[in-house]
Amino acid sequence: MTTAEPLPVLTRKDFVSDQEVRWCPGCGDYAILAQTQKLMPELNIPREKIVFISGIGCSSRLPYYMNTYGFHSIHGRAPTIATGLKSSRPDLSVWVITGDGDGLSIGGNHLIHVLRRNVDLVIVLFNNRIYGLTKGQYSPTSEQGKITKTSPLGSLDYPVNACSLALGANATFVARSIATDTQHLVSTLERAHQHKGASFVEVFQNCNVYNDGAFDEFTDKAVRPDRTIAVEHGQPLIFGKERNRGLRLNGVTPEVVDLGNGITESDLLVHDETLEDPTIASILARMEYPEFPVPLGVLRAFQKPTYDELMEDQVQEAIAKQGEGDLEALFAEGDTWVVD
């Protein structure tokens, strides 16, 4: 950013609003809020240029706690409001905060379209696999058979995989992180911000009241190295406490292999986040525990022109070609006549 005057140095505190945070004690949302507030001063953007837009749900309260511009909208519609804002004001840094219910259920359609249009936004989806605000009903990411008050015999729904859906919509940036790993989270959010285009970040977030431990079986410190896999651009896909296991592709089927016994690093899939074709990223995104280690990190970061940029270009091109619009000339377009 080139500004004549140096920006005032901001700190995390400058991004903390005067509103009392009202999530349940112990909720994973706190960590995401803290990392977001911590990241903001690093972005070197004037505070007034930052806007957080959310829908409805526990996660969607976040804008109230950010001392930036904010819009806590209606259920599922944050991507639409963000699209209108960013398309009309490309100078702003616009963030969408959503959850598994808001973004994948009631607002699923908008999520698909904001991603395929590649509007230059950061979309952070807090996935806690439950409806928290309405006190614990199964969500579109809940595992089948989930027992809740609205599914006393177990939910029948097959769950959706958020990153896979995003890639299906041809999202140009797709990443996954977990709220408990603050380092990973803040660097993932930073990458998402740096990407020009629609950046989608799914964050596994624990709802300790209605779905406690939803991700423990693979995110617990003790098992995490064996049950998750860090995807890093240009690196072979290796995981395991001993870093002795890897992932290779057999046709379009991923395979977990043990290194050694003739299998070396060179047999493994090397992660390339920049591929235009999202197929391999989708294969990775669809890997779920226990069959596979759960991938964390940036699955895809492919650059192409953004919607807001293209929209602005069309305006500028029309002006360059036809000259700035003359309203009175337009009024008198076509056949006219004079009555004296």
Binding site: P79, T80, S87, M311, G325
Partner: peptide, 24 residues
């Protein structure tokens, strides 16, 4: 009317259309 600085968005549905208008 792009040369008048007008931006138009053909939205994915009616909800998105008004959402975008509110955002603008």
């Amino acid at each position: 009317f792009k040369r008048f600085g007008v931006k138009t968005l053909q939205a994915e549905d009616e909800l998105a259309a008004i959402g975008a208008a509110i955002g603008a």
